[in-house]
């Protein structure tokens, strides 16, 4: 009887370990292949029109592909801001867009138009804050976005004109094209000095930023 227990337990343990170790090495080889792929297209990671947050002379750059309608991006936003504040002037953030939801593009167009009135970050923050209202999955109400604008002191008429500016359209199209280049399927996706994160999460992001800061300074 004892023998049998050992055989059953041993087999189960063996198969589960095989699964975990195989999984570990598979993921590792995948991320290596992906890193090489990203390295080849590194110059495409940065565009001249991506919004910049932080010190423009910082040597460590985070590129974040985000979607204003994505909940995880909303949850990450304060953490990313805190991270940049923590490495005081050594880290900057470039925002690029991954419009994966139904009303993302409209929200991005408004955001970019707000940027022309120098109110980009306030608007993004407000959109994130109010996301459960306008971007709810059961009942999205994108028309609510427009009601927020006067509260932010934005000129709504100018937003309406600027949101279809060829530069805005071009920017969104370029970002969407690069989603394919970098095979981005989830938001937020981060690149720290051109390197993808080994696994998703705030911990790995912080770790990557810390390492990059140590290397650069």
């Amino acid at each position: 009887m004892k023998n049998k227990t050992i055989i059953i337990g041993g087999s189960a343990l063996f198969l589960i370990c095989l699964f975990l170790i195989g999984g570990y090495f598979f993921k590792k080889s995948e991320i290596n292949k992906y890193s090489e792929e990203v390295e080849k297209n590194r110059q495409k990671l940065l565009t001249e029109f991506a919004p910049l947050y932080g010190n423009k002379d910082a040597k460590v750059e985070i590129v974040e592909f985000l979607d204003p309608e994505c909940e995880t991006c909303r949850n990450f936003y304060p953490a990313v801001k805190k991270l940049i504040a923590e490495f005081d002037g050594k880290v900057k953030l470039f925002v690029r867009y991954a419009p994966f939801h139904k009303n993302s593009i409209q929200a991005i167009q408004i955001l970019e138009a707000a940027r022309m009135q120098n109110k980009y970050w306030q608007t993004l923050e407000f959109f994130f804050q109010k996301q459960p209202e306008w971007g709810s999955h059961q009942k999205p109400q994108p028309e609510l976005l427009w009601t927020y604008l006067p509260k932010l002191g934005l000129d709504v008429e100018r937003i309406r004109q600027d949101m279809n500016h060829p530069q805005v359209i071009n920017q969104i199209e370029t970002d969407m094209k690069d989603l394919k280049t970098f095979n981005i399927k989830a938001t937020p996706t981060f690149f720290v000095n051109g390197k993808p994160l080994p696994t998703f999460g705030y911990g790995p992001l912080r770790e990557a930023v810390k390492k990059a800061v140590e290397e650069a300074y």
């Binding site: 055989i7 087999s11 198969l15 999984g23």
Partner: peptide, 22 residues
């Protein structure tokens, strides 16, 4: 029965490998 269990284990873990790892 033991062989049956091993086959079910391999099939289950294998399908999980395809979906969650790959």
């Amino acid at each position: 029965l033991f062989v049956c269990w091993i086959i079910a284990m391999i099939a289950s873990l294998g399908s999980l490998f395809f979906s969650s790892i790959m």
